[in-house]
């Protein structure tokens, strides 16, 4: 199959029909956001969690609910507030008068898809309860360890840290999110359609399940089998090296970030219907994977500005 390479590059143009249908449907609900939606699905395939950062009202919650509906996943939302307690996230044991014993009531985190809304409005204590669960995919409450469902996908939203009343997530916790994306305002065409069309929430119940959970799990294992050649790993390492050596950045990308980058790129390649990762895949996911893990030495700059030097100055070996 590789001898004439036909699988490789041609298929890049013909996306796997499963994904194209998924994308099309999502795009019909959330208008003008093809690329962020594709990144969301990519993140999901790579078994990563997603952080959406933007100002209120650009459709963060709608996006999360649409994805849940399309995947047929049970979905629960946690509204993070400053008085949220870890037990509100994880669940707690409550005395049952009938059986004279404590019974564990699982918290919202025990759902396949969790929307952690405005995560940076709560105290670090509640934040870390969720973030631990995300990393370990299990919850330990009162000495008993309970596994979380598979698939398990957290979409957290946060307001830009410059807003009042926020507890910014520390770097170590940002690292738990595979990707961070920004939605941004819709373009004028999409906005007009939005203003003319019906209530977006009303569309949700009508959505078909495009990718059932079982299929999603199969695809997730297939992501791991996507081939990454030594030449590609050279490129990944060159990127990591650049981020660590360049005076542009305060600190480089961690090894975990390197793994995340590769994994996300594999998912991206799979969505393109390819069996191997190309440098373009790395470049496609790099802004959302590396954007929140890097800080410019000049302190500031948008996500795009942060990764621009990586995309522009690191030669593909």
């Amino acid at each position: 199959m590789l001898a004439d390479g036909s699988h490789f590059f041609r298929n890049r143009r013909n996306m796997d029909p499963v994904f194209s249908r998924l994308l099309e449907t999502a795009n019909s609900v959330i208008l003008g956001k093809e690329h962020p939606i594709r990144l969301c699905i990519c993140c999901l395939l790579a078994r990563g969690h997603l952080l959406i950062e933007d100002v209120p009202g650009v459709g963060k919650t709608t996006l999360a609910r649409t994805l849940a509906a399309l995947l047929g996943l049970k979905y629960q939302r946690i509204q993070f507030t400053s008085d949220l307690l870890p037990a509100d996230v994880l669940g707690s044991s409550i005395y049952d008068a009938a059986t004279h014993s404590f019974r564990f009531h699982p918290g919202p985190v025990f759902n396949p898809m969790v929307l952690a809304d405005e995560i940076n409005r709560s105290t670090p204590r509640a934040q870390s309860a969720l973030l631990e669960a995300m990393e370990e995919r299990q919850v330990t409450v009162e000495g008993e360890t309970r596994p979380l469902p598979e698939p398990f996908f957290v979409i957290a939203t946060q307001n830009p840290n410059t807003q009042i009343g926020t507890f910014p997530l520390p770097e170590s916790q940002l690292d738990r999110f595979l990707m961070r994306i920004e939605l941004g305002y819709p373009d004028s065409r999409a906005e007009r359609e939005l203003l003319m069309g019906e209530e977006r929430y009303a569309l949700l119940p009508q959505l078909p399940v495009c990718l059932p959970a079982e299929e999603l799990l199969v695809l997730q294992t297939r992501v791991r089998n996507v081939h990454a050649s030594p030449a590609l790993l050279d490129y990944v390492q060159a990127l990591l090296h650049f981020s660590r050596e360049s005076p542009l950045y305060q600190g480089g990308l961690s090894p975990r970030a390197g793994l995340a980058l590769l994994h996300a790129a594999k998912a991206w390649a799979l969505m393109d219907g390819r069996a191997a990762v190309l440098p373009e895949d790395i470049q496609a996911v790099l802004p959302s994977v590396a954007g929140h893990r890097l800080k410019l030495a000049s302190n500031g700059g948008s996500m795009a500005a942060t990764v621009a030097p990586l995309l522009r100055d690191v030669a593909i070996p």
Partner: peptide, 21 residues
């Protein structure tokens, strides 16, 4: 040409025949 090159460079295997082609 690019397709085949990508297949060889990033696709994993590298048979001599592919290089010739």
């Amino acid at each position: 040409f690019t397709e085949l090159f990508l297949a060889i460079r990033y696709g994993g295997s590298e048979p001599a025949a592919a290089l010739e082609r």
